[in-house]
Each structure stands twice: as C-alpha cells, then as structure tokens.
C-alpha cells in the first residue's frame, strides 16, 4: 500500500544546501529584474496594447494604494481577517496535534487509518465552504470553521509521521531500559517529532489564512480583506484590488516570518540534528 507522506514542504533546506560560491553580482541581477518589471508594468498599459482599466500602470496602482491606506476603512477589514486567523489557527493546531498523538503513537492504529488519512488528504476541503457559509451564516463563525477544517490537516499528518521517525533500534533501546510507553513517547518520539510538527504548524498558519480568505471571498456581507478584494475587482477598480492583494502578500510574508521565529525558538536544536542526520 501507499505510504503517508508529510503534508508540507520547506524552503529552509534549499537556502543552506550549498556554500555560496559564485554569487557576485546577484544583487545587480535582482535590481535590474525589478527595474525592468516596473518599467514594463508602467509603459505597456500606456501603449494601449492591453486594456488600461484591467491592467493599470504602476503609478496608477501606487496612487490606489495611497488612496486605500489613507481611506482608513480597511483597518476594520484587516482586523476581521486577522482576528479570524488568530482564532482558527490555534484551534486547528491543537486539534491536529491531538489527532496525531491519538492516532500516531501506535504503529498498528497508524497503519489502519492510513487509507482514511489519504482520503481526507485527497478531498479538497474547500468544497465545504459554501455549506459552512450556508449553515453558520456570513459572520466570522463560518470563516473560522473553514479555516480550522483546512489547517488542522498538515499538523495531524506531520505529527503522525514525526512520531514514527525514530529508528526501530531506538525503540528497542528504550524498551530494554524498561521505559514505559509514556516515557518512550515523551523522551523519544515527541522530541524527534517536534521539528517536523513545527513545519506542519507553520504550514497550517498559511492554510488558516487561505481558509479565511476563501470564506471572505465567497460570503457576501461580513467584511475582511478577501471581501474587499472581491468587491473592488467586481467594480473593476483594479488599482485598489491590486493594493488589497499587496497588503495580503505583505501580511502573509510577515506571518511566515513570525512562524519562522517561533519555529527556530522551539526547535533550537534542529540545525544540529539535521547536520547529524546527514
């Protein structure tokens, strides 16, 4: 049968995999690319080759951004979105972790439920969004419910896979030293699983954000950045739409950075353990 794979990828590995050999001039390449991109963004819409309403120039977009930020009304939407993420993420993480511990500590149960885990993974959970909105209404409850359903999954799977990481010999050593199940869990399985669980936790933060945005875009009345983007887009006010997307991008990058810091604090030993494993 198929094996269960961890549910997240990580970039950390790529960044440190090879010593920087030949990176001279990389800064220039980046700068020139950005400059060319901005110039194209600015001048192609002006030539009339593409519709300027749908593809506003860079300066138009910048003006839209200033208008949006100085308008002030977006603070409320920002707050609503962030509040939903802040509630849904911890619930999803706690739920996923408990599922992982309950179902992942024994290899027997783990093997038995693997087909179901694959099925849950294969089902795109956003299909539930319209139903949840229909049931819980347009308020923040439906957003939070959808975000929890989407974001608990990687924590669950990564906990389960992580708890199975120690080698058979390590289990045998613990058993021969008369460790209880509880001791094996606390002193062997959990410490070796935590680096992987943290990857899942980080991934689930992004998924919680995605879940909240999907619910906001789909539901009609309650505010939030997703709804703001959809409204501006349906008015064909593209500079403001771009600006909302820009704010979402900045927020997402900030959230990931925060999650990175948390990850590094929690698994301070992980660089060392990775080096040892190699």
């Amino acid at each position: 049968m198929t094996t269960l794979a961890p549910a997240s990828t990580t970039t950390a590995k790529v960044k440190q995999q090879r010593p920087d050999r030949d990176t001279k001039g990389a800064g220039w390449i980046a700068l020139i690319t950005i400059a060319v991109f901005l110039l194209l963004w600015q001048f192609i819409p002006q030539t009339g080759l593409i519709n300027r309403v749908l593809f506003p120039t860079f300066t138009d977009t910048l003006a839209g951004f200033v208008q949006l930020v100085s308008g002030g009304y977006w603070w409320e939407d920002l707050g609503k979105t962030m509040m939903a993420v802040a509630i849904a993420w911890p619930i999803g993480v706690a739920f996923g972790f408990s599922m992982g511990v309950i179902l992942g500590t024994s290899p027997f149960i783990r093997q038995a439920i693997t087909p179901y885990a694959i099925a849950v993974q294969a089902l795109p959970k956003v299909v539930l969004a319209p139903l949840l909105i229909g049931w819980l209404g347009f308020g923040s409850e439906s957003k939070i419910a959808l975000a929890v359903i989407i974001c608990f999954f990687p924590v669950w799977i990564d906990t389960m896979v992580g708890l199975a990481l120690p080698a058979a010999n390590e289990f045998k050593l613990m058993q021969s030293l008369k460790a209880t199940r509880r001791q094996i869990f606390l002193k062997l399985q959990l410490p070796s699983a935590i680096p992987m669980i943290m990857v899942g936790v980080k991934h689930s933060l992004l998924l919680a954000f995605t879940g909240v945005l999907v619910a906001e875009i789909l539901s009609a009345s309650d505010g939030g950045l997703g709804k703001l983007a959809k409204e501006f887009a349906s008015q064909l006010n593209m500079p403001l739409t771009y600006s909302v997307v820009g704010i979402v991008v900045i927020l997402a990058v900030a959230l990931v950075s925060i999650a990175d810091v948390i990850e590094r604090r929690v698994v301070f030993w992980s660089e060392e353990s990775r080096a040892r494993k190699r």
Binding site: L206, A233, M238, A252
Partner: peptide
C-alpha cells in the same frame, strides 16, 4: 521564497476580472 507565503486564492477575483 516569498511566494510560499502568498495565499493564491486572493488572486482569484483579479484573474476573473
């Protein structure tokens, strides 16, 4: 790498427009 963070669904209204 920043792309990892971006929830692509937010681009859906733009793409539809």
């Amino acid at each position: 790498s920043a792309l990892e963070a971006i929830p692509t669904v937010i681009l859906a209204p733009i793409i539809i427009a």
